[in-house]
Each structure stands twice: as structure tokens, then as C-alpha cells.
Computed example of a mutant assay.
Amino acid sequence: MHYDLTDLRVFLAVAEEAHLSRGAARCHLAPSSASLRLKGLEEAVGTPLLTRHARGVTPTRAGVVMLEHVRRCIAQLEQMHADLLPFASGLTGHITCFANNNALSAHLPEDLARFFAAYPAVRITLQERLSQDIVAAVAAGRADVGVVAMEGDHPDLEFLPYRDDELVLLAPQNSPLAAQQAVSFSACLHQPFISLQQGAALHTYLVNQATALGGRLDVRVQVSGYRAIARLVASGAGVGIVPRSAIDHADQQQVAMIKLTEDWAMRHLCVCIRRQALESNHFLAELVRTLCGSVADPGK
């Protein structure tokens, strides 16, 4: 297909402005030049992308699909330039870190703040993943370091202690569950759940645990964070399972926090690195020392 990045930018601008002239002006082009580029783009993809009318333009059904892809492509390119810019400004290090949801939401922010205070020129690509996927990524070299809720046994990796945490059940204070000191996960499956959004590591983990018990997670509401789970539970909308460390004091006063009896509810977070990786990467070694503050010589 014969089109270039400028064609995509023109299409994006015209579609978002819903007008050829305004879209062309946004791209610093004459309307006639923008029109030629759009015509060439439509010929290249083999279908009309915009419907022209007296008051402007609207995307066709194919144009709507194209628009979403173009937005993602442009955003990824912009992110690529943003990631590369520090190298031109004297960046001295870049680290890719994968972490599970628990570590990302409750522990890493403060630890990374301390690391950046000491090493402001270093950049970190931080992504959420399931623990087993993190281990595979670190072993394969797709990530420099991982934070996982498991103590693994891998011939190529080391697991260093990071934090201890616990998954707990949140229930409305007037719920029958609120009177219990501890409850099993299986006993909760008849309850409507407030959960993180689909794709979040904890959501996937709990769905898998329910499936392993021969049941399913009855998800009533999906939200983007633990605070939202706590507030919805407090309103009586359902129950939720969250890391104890992720719930602040104010929210703890509004819900009942109940211990889960399953062994997997205890979360022993570890920092996962390839063996000898710290010897060749000074900034990675410093990051690991920041995360594992009680470990005198990580990697030895």
C-alpha cells in the first residue's frame, strides 16, 4: 500500500475536524493538497474513508475503523519520539520493568520516586503484567526486572524479597459477611463482585481461581482502581478483593475487611532479575537496591 505518515496525519486531522479545510489547515496544507492525499489514501486501502457533503465530511464505516487504527499508530509514534528524546538530551540509562497490579498500585510509586531523586536522567518503562508472564519476560530479556507475587525456581533468574502483602475481601458493613473473621473464596462466589477492569492482572487471577473451583466470578461492576472498588463496596453494590496495602485509612472505616483463608491470599512480592544482570547494568543494580532496601548485596 502506497501511503505515508503525512497521509495518515491528514486523514486524522480532517476526520477529527469534520471539515477538509480545517483539517488541512491543522496540517499546514492547502485544501487541494489535503484532498489529493486523502484520495490517494482511499485508493491505497481500496475503499472510501470519508463521505463528503456540503457542511463538511464524516467517516464511512471503513473510515471509523481506519480512524481508530490511525489514532493508535500516531500515539505510538509520538510515544516512540518521547522515549527517544531523553537519549538526545544525555540520557544515561533506560530500564524496562514489569510488575503485577499489587506492586504497581501500592508499593512501587514511592520506591521509584526515591530512585528518580537519585538518578533523574534514567528512564523506566513500567508495565503491568501477570506474575507468570513477568517471569517469562525477564527470562527472555523482554524486561530487565520484574516484581512478582511468587517465589520462583528458575535456572536463569534470581528472586529477591521485596514486600509482603495480603489479598482481603471487602464487604459492606451491613453484609452478613462482615461478621466473619475469615472467609473462603469459594464461599464468596455467590456474591456480586466489584472488580478491576478486564485485562488487569488481579481480575484475570481471580477469574482463573473461580474457574479452578468450578465456578465463575459474578462481576457486577468493573472499575479502574482499588479506591473505586472500596467506595462501591461501601455503597452496598457488591464485594471486592483487593490488596490490604491498597486501601487507605478513610476507606477502611467504610467497609468490612475480611481475611481470605486461601494460601494464595498471602502475597510475598519478589524482585525478579536475570542472574549476573546487575554486574553489567549499574542503574539496574541501583534500582534493585532501592526496591530491596534490606538486601545488602542483591545479585550476590
Rank of each mutant, 00 (worst) to 15 (best):
A18D: 04
C27K: 12
Q76G: 05
A265G: 15
G90A: 05
A54D: 10
Q209W: 10
S105Y: 11
E42F: 03
M80Y: 06
E17I: 01
S294I: 00
R52M: 05
E43Y: 03
L170S: 07
I194Y: 12
S21V: 14
C97W: 04
R163E: 13
L232K: 11
Q198T: 12
H268P: 02
R231W: 04
P192H: 09
A34C: 11
N102Q: 03
L85M: 13
F159I: 05
R9M: 07
A62E: 14
H94W: 13
L157E: 04
L8C: 12
V14Q: 13
H282Y: 04
L169V: 03
A228Q: 15
A250T: 15
F185R: 12
L167F: 15
Q191A: 13
I194N: 09
L169K: 11
I134R: 13
N174F: 08
L5K: 10
L167H: 09
L112I: 14
M1K: 14
E17F: 03
G293W: 02
P192M: 13
H28F: 14
V295I: 00
E158K: 00
P243W: 01
T211P: 00
A228C: 06
G238D: 10
L260D: 07
I134F: 04
A200I: 00
A179K: 11
L177I: 14
L112G: 08
V239I: 15
M1C: 09
Q132V: 10
A118Y: 07
D7K: 06
